[in-house]
């Protein structure tokens, strides 16, 4: 009886190791927006039970840190701590509108799902995200359009004040040097404190006043905001 159990356990583990055979991925990420930058990108391969974020769920403190200030260290540590693998900051800094970063190699080991996050600048807490996409076992090229999410952790006041630490109001920066100043602040009437599809920014056409420090002609977007291509080898 004991032997029999052991034997079937071996068989099961044999099957398991086949279905989760290591995949070598080659990934590219493109910024599709008109005028928004991506902060350092985090690409993570993890198991089917893990998530960097989930729409309809509260953001973790690690996600909040990424979405409000672009800091991926805590998210990356959470992934690797749970046995996942990451590619951190493959673009080597900001990924500007229209730019793409290619040839990101990722050996997924036994990990089955792929997630991607990066903050959108200039925003309060918008991020581009891919949540736990099941990595295909069939070799091929897969193209995915990614949406912008609102972390739900900070009011979208659209004030550029350098506020990038978690819990600090405001937008850390407008790297395109196209932000305004002296905005009185957009009243964010949203009561949704869960991660959700971002409603987009409002902006205005007054660089020295108005409600928003964002420019409605430059900083607005519609989904999708990014496109990733995953080549499964």
């Amino acid at each position: 009886m004991k032997l029999k159990t052991l034997a079937s356990a071996l068989i099961v583990s044999g099957i398991m190791s086949q279905t989760v055979a290591a995949a070598e991925l080659e990934i590219s990420v493109q910024n599709l927006t008109h005028g928004n930058q991506f902060t350092p990108i985090l690409i993570a391969a993890h198991d089917g039970d893990s998530h960097l974020f989930q729409a309809g769920e509260m953001a973790t403190p690690a996600l909040q840190k990424m979405a409000e200030g672009g800091d991926i260290a805590d998210l990356a540590a959470a992934v690797t701590g749970a046995g996942g693998v990451t590619s951190e900051n493959p673009a080597g800094g900001l990924l500007f509108p229209g730019a793409h970063v290619d040839s990101i190699m990722l050996d997924t080991l036994t990990m089955t799902h792929l997630s991607v996050t990066a903050m959108l600048l200039p925003t309060n807490d918008a991020f581009v995200g891919l949540d736990a996409w099941e990595i295909p076992t069939e070799a091929g090229t897969y193209t995915l359009n990614l949406n912008a999410y609102d972390a739900g952790t900070e009011a979208n006041d659209e004030i550029i004040n350098g506020g990038g630490a978690a819990g600090t109001p405001g937008i850390p920066a407008a790297p395109g040097m196209d932000g305004g100043a002296n905005g009185t602040g957009v009243m964010d009437g949203s009561s949704n404190d869960k991660v959700h599809i971002h409603p987009g920014v409002l902006g205005d056409t007054d660089p020295n006043g108005g409600a928003s420090d964002l420019d409605s002609r430059i900083h607005r977007w519609l989904n999708p905001v990014a496109r990733i291509t995953v080549v499964v080898k």
Partner: peptide, 11 residues
């Protein structure tokens, strides 16, 4: 900007 991109929508 002279590149094709995802349209930001009309204002």
């Amino acid at each position: 900007v002279n590149r094709v991109h995802s349209h930001p929508g009309v204002i």
